[in-house]
Amino acid sequence: MTRQEPVLEVEDLRTHFFTRGGVAKAVDGVSFTLNRGEILGLVGESGSGKSVTGMSILGLIDPPGRIVGGAVRYRGEDLVKAGEKRLRQLRGNRIAMIFQDPMMTLNPVLSVETQMVETVLAHDKVSRQQARERAREALVRVGIPSPDERLAAYPHQFSGGMRQRVAIAIALLHQPDVIIADEPTTALDVTIQAQILFEVQKLCRETGTALVWITHDLAVVSGLADRIAVMYAGRVVETGTTVEVIDGARHPYTHGLLGSVPSRNRRGEPLSQIPGMTPSLLNLPEGCAFRPRCQRATEICLAVPPLSDGGHGWRCFHPEGAAA
């Protein structure tokens, strides 16, 4: 793939939550780049900071949370330093977001039309009629039948999959450069999940929209993403192309994740499990956060390992495939 101007660059992003119990470093030095039309899978278990990363990009962190360092560059413009007004211009317009639970993301007391039209009008000076026409087209694009009827309907009249399609249609209204999708298929049935995955991929390819797909499910992104970043306790522990990460995982955590996913290649073998539990963000172990659960850990892991250079990078002193 040829080297391109990145549309989104996250560099050493740090988002901390100042709670009464202490400072929770939900995101603590996350970096990745996203090229035009590229799909990045941001993988991690709950509490790894992947959702907070997504919200931080759009400046949607509420107190007690705050972005304390790093940069989020959209086409070279640092959004961390941008004002609320500028962020509002970009949100839903150039950078859109889709949330996890389609039951919760649409306002139950407003019609679908209202919720779509307001999104158009928030960014473009068009008439209500034109806005409605665009909303209609967007519904058609995500495969919703009889869009005119559906526009007048309220969210409770839709199924979960249909609601997520509406949310995706809303995200597509302004043909954004980037869509941040925060586990958009987790709450759906597996068959619906596959449909949505397929369609989002297709739509992004058609429009050249880049996609950050946040998920805990490595299996889902392996079929979808161009590149993968694995997060653990607020840091990216391994990043690379999908092939590099899936077939040549170096970080013990990525390895553990892969081992816990059932796969055809290893039919009959027992699934492995990562011992221990995700550490509390308020009380992270010193050095490599994965150390207490890692069989390869040694004294040296008491320091934070740097992300190794190159397209395929990992944050580990004792990567798999190297001498222990």
């Binding site: 949100r91 839903g92 859109a96 993301t105 928030a122």
Partner: peptide, 9 residues
């Protein structure tokens, strides 16, 4: 949150 992410005032 979704409304904010849509860029509404």
């Amino acid at each position: 949150r979704f409304a904010r992410a849509k860029g509404l005032s």
